[in-house]
Design a protein around this nucleic acid. Sequence first.
DNA 1: TTCGTTGCAAAGGATTTGCAGCGTA
DNA 2: TACGCTGCAAATCCTTTGCAACGAA
Lengths: 150, 150
Amino acid sequence: MQPDAYMSALKNRGYRATGKRREILSFLLDENRYVSAREIIDHMREKHPTLSLETVYRNLRTMQTEGIIEESRFKEGESKYRIACQTDHHHHYICIRCGRTLVIKHCPMPDLGRAPEGFTVLGHRFEVLGYCPDCRRSEPDPQDHMPEGR
Amino acid sequence: MQPDAYMSALKNRGYRATGKRREILSFLLDENRYVSAREIIDHMREKHPTLSLETVYRNLRTMQTEGIIEESRFKEGESKYRIACQTDHHHHYICIRCGRTLVIKHCPMPDLGRAPEGFTVLGHRFEVLGYCPDCRRSEPDPQDHMPEGR
DNA sequence: TTCGTTGCAAAGGATTTGCAGCGTA
DNA sequence: TACGCTGCAAATCCTTTGCAACGAA
């Protein structure tokens, strides 16, 4: 899907098609991995020197509200965001170093059977964390560590 | 398992058995659900007026390092912690309102087969989020919402 | 006595918000 | 023109840290 398609969708929802919004969207589409607000602005400052971090955050929030992107917090401190798949439900292998992902088609939910009596399921989260082929070969980053859970 | 058992374990690791540490541990054992640092100090201030939030955070970190507790971030903003099960690996249904949990014995990892070529698996995360029987009956809290993912 | 622990005050870091000017529809 | 969008500065919120006094071993 191209940036324009998303921009049209946003327009239909009452948002405006600004250049900066479009660029942020393009960047997310190009990267196709989890990136932080900081990474976004750092990578985009060359071509868009006037882009501010606030604008990045505001647009991320808008796009998240609209279901265009999804957030994860596999890295301590900051959230990371990526373009959400609009078609099929799936999960990810996620590289905790670079945010790259690999698709996991299998969803564990059907295997669970019904939820415990009285529990209302609103959502679920399944992620396999580790290093992608590229990152496991590079210097270990002291910043990297397993987040909550194992 | 009782607080004393954990305290002994900590002692063997070079930490000291202080009263406040023991009380925080007791509280976590009693609650047996995900609680935030803020909840811990709020609930404990009556009996321990001199307990500080910093001490709570420092102890949480220590206990997390030692594998005694586990962290999750299903609620926006703050982390929540609970006593970790020392025996069998499992996952949880988690109430996003009160942090209560129900055990999911099934782990999706064996169903995945081997990881993609070159990907080094370090850990995984599987949580089913929603409302527990008690919380779904109460006033909806505007603070509540599905975190990242669905 | 030694060294981990704690409270206080302050610092950090990520994210959000008030406001006035700008840009899209 | 109307109203969403943006940058700037400042504020929040959660969490961490420096330091000196305190407490466990």
